[in-house]
């Protein structure tokens, strides 16, 4: 029993318990907070796997941004169904499909586990290892530099596509959630032609039939 196993066990306990709470909790706020715990636990797994960059990105993006957006959406919504408390069902069954979701999930999980069990993990790095070389040693620069280099060389096109996707998502989210504010453009008064006023001596009392003609004559006179 090593410290890696201890850390792994703690993370696994927190992750699995919180994941179960996410899908089973009758309160949507509790589900969101437990999802945050799962995300932090996954960041801990990344640290155990010596992927420090991804651990930081996980915390920043998931816990910092995605969870914030979800909790904002829950808290700022005035719909009682979103805010939780009512309408969310506890228990393992689904009201529409009964026990089917549980069966499907267990079936998929069991299928993958049986698949793993049928694989002989003989490839040297995949079997139990006393020690793998540290990633920072094998890559010479840690994973951060490696990811940066890979992103801008081999994966440049996917990187650009991903940035385009983020831009589209940003614009889409803003357009979708924008409230339709009824902006009434007031009828602005026509600009006063000061030269016409000076010539004729009368102010802009309102739209008259001869106004356009007056203005035209005034501008023509100004140019002459």
């Amino acid at each position: 029993m090593s410290w890696a196993w201890v850390g792994f066990a703690v993370l696994t306990g927190a992750a699995v318990f919180s994941a179960l709470r996410v899908v089973l909790s009758p309160s949507i706020t509790h589900a969101a907070l437990h999802l945050a715990i799962v995300l932090v636990a996954v960041a801990g797994y990344f640290l155990l796997l010596q992927s420090e960059f991804l651990a930081v990105v996980q915390v920043l993006v998931y816990v910092g941004a995605v969870m914030t957006v979800i909790i904002f959406a829950i808290m700022l919504s005035d719909l009682p169904l979103i805010r939780g408390g009512a309408g969310l069902r506890a228990g393992l069954g689904s009201e529409r499909f009964g026990w089917l979701p549980l069966l499907v999930a267990c079936g998929v999980g069991a299928l993958v586990l049986v698949g793993y069990g049928s694989v002989v993990w003989t490839a040297a790095p995949l079997a139990f290892q006393e020690s793998l070389p540290m990633l920072a040693d094998t890559t010479g620069q840690g994973t951060t530099g490696l990811i940066g280099r890979a992103l801008f060389t081999s994966y440049l096109v996917p990187f650009e596509v991903a940035s385009l996707l983020l831009l589209a998502a940003l614009v889409g989210a803003i357009v979708l959630t924008r409230r339709e504010v009824a902006v009434r453009v007031r009828e602005l008064p026509k600009p006063v032609d000061l030269r016409a006023v000076a010539r004729t001596g009368r102010g802009p009392a309102g739209p008259k039939a001869g106004d356009e003609a007056d203005a035209e004559r005034a501008s023509a006179g100004g140019e002459a």
């Binding site: 994941a19 969101a32 979701p101 999930a105 993958v112």
Partner: peptide
Amino acid sequence: VVLFSIGLFGALRRRNAIMVLMA
């Protein structure tokens, strides 16, 4: 696998759309 199965279960079971997103 365990986390994925739990998420799949939640996505299939929940009615609330935000819950489905979280799963």
